Simulated scan of single mutants.
Amino acid sequence: MKKQIPIALIYSRLVFAALIILLAIQQPAHYRLLINVLLVTGLLTDVFDGIIARSLKISTVKLRRLDSIVDQVFWISALVAAYLICSTFFKEHAILLFLLLAAEAMTYGVSYIKFKKEVATHAVSSKFWTLLILATLIQIISSCDSSWLFMTCFYVGMVTRMEIMAILLLLSQWENDIPSVFHAIRIRQGKKIKRNKLFNG
């Protein structure tokens, strides 16, 4: 049963994604608070599914790929919900949002073209960016406004997307859990890399 916990945590984000969209559409009492609670809870499941899987020694490539796919669904759902609630904000920042989404799409394009697989680098910088995304979405959903936090999220997002593309271009074969471009260079040189037991297996 313990080995099913990471899988259950991963799939729970699909449930949260559906609830987030439903709340954004129906907009019942306290829906903004409820959505934000689901966002935070979803992030926590993302953190602990990997930690638990590694502690149980069941952190397989298949599980990490599943985690990456579900993450995309979860955050896209959160973005859609934020748009449904605060469409004006998105219209005002359409160009920056388009550039950011295009950069994200490019990382997947590079990965699929080169390896025929999705991105699953789980770089440390991307984990930091995820925290910024969470904070930005919470602020937008709560107030339909975000100034310096959104801009910080945008620039960090662009930098981290460029790092992921660099990692993918450096790797000769698909690998998951590459902490940074420095580690990708070492792998390309045939050297072993150290991964954080807590975050990168």
Rank of each mutant, 00 (worst) to 15 (best):
63 L>Y: 01
22 L>M: 15
34 L>F: 14
101 L>I: 11
33 L>M: 14
198 L>Y: 12
130 T>A: 15
155 Y>N: 09
189 Q>I: 03
160 T>S: 08
75 W>M: 02
126 S>L: 09
56 L>S: 12
5 I>H: 08
129 W>D: 05
20 I>W: 06
57 K>A: 11
132 L>V: 10
119 V>E: 02
111 S>W: 00
84 L>P: 06
47 V>M: 14
33 L>G: 13
71 D>K: 00
37 V>F: 15
17 A>S: 15
112 Y>T: 07
123 A>Y: 03
80 V>N: 03
76 I>W: 03
154 F>A: 06
150 F>E: 08
10 I>Q: 03
160 T>F: 04
86 C>A: 08
112 Y>G: 02
168 L>T: 00
9 L>Y: 12
190 G>T: 02
40 V>R: 14
9 L>E: 11
173 Q>N: 11
20 I>C: 09
106 M>E: 10
135 A>G: 07
132 L>M: 13
70 V>R: 02
80 V>Q: 01
167 I>L: 12
194 K>G: 05
95 I>M: 08
30 H>R: 09
19 L>D: 11
163 E>S: 06
42 G>W: 04
48 F>G: 14
170 L>A: 10
75 W>N: 01
36 N>K: 08
147 S>G: 14
65 R>K: 12
25 I>F: 13
93 H>Q: 04
132 L>C: 11
47 V>H: 12
120 A>K: 07
181 V>H: 04
69 I>P: 00
115 F>V: 04
89 F>Y: 03
189 Q>N: 07
83 Y>S: 02
112 Y>L: 14
73 V>S: 01
109 G>F: 03
133 I>Q: 14
199 F>W: 12
10 I>E: 03
134 L>R: 07
29 A>N: 11
4 Q>M: 13
124 V>F: 13
147 S>I: 10
166 A>G: 02
37 V>E: 13
128 F>A: 14
108 Y>C: 04
72 Q>I: 03
29 A>D: 12
14 L>W: 09
147 S>D: 15
187 I>Y: 00
16 F>C: 11
20 I>Q: 06
28 P>A: 04
100 L>P: 00
4 Q>C: 06
83 Y>R: 00
25 I>L: 13
106 M>Q: 10
168 L>E: 03
198 L>C: 05
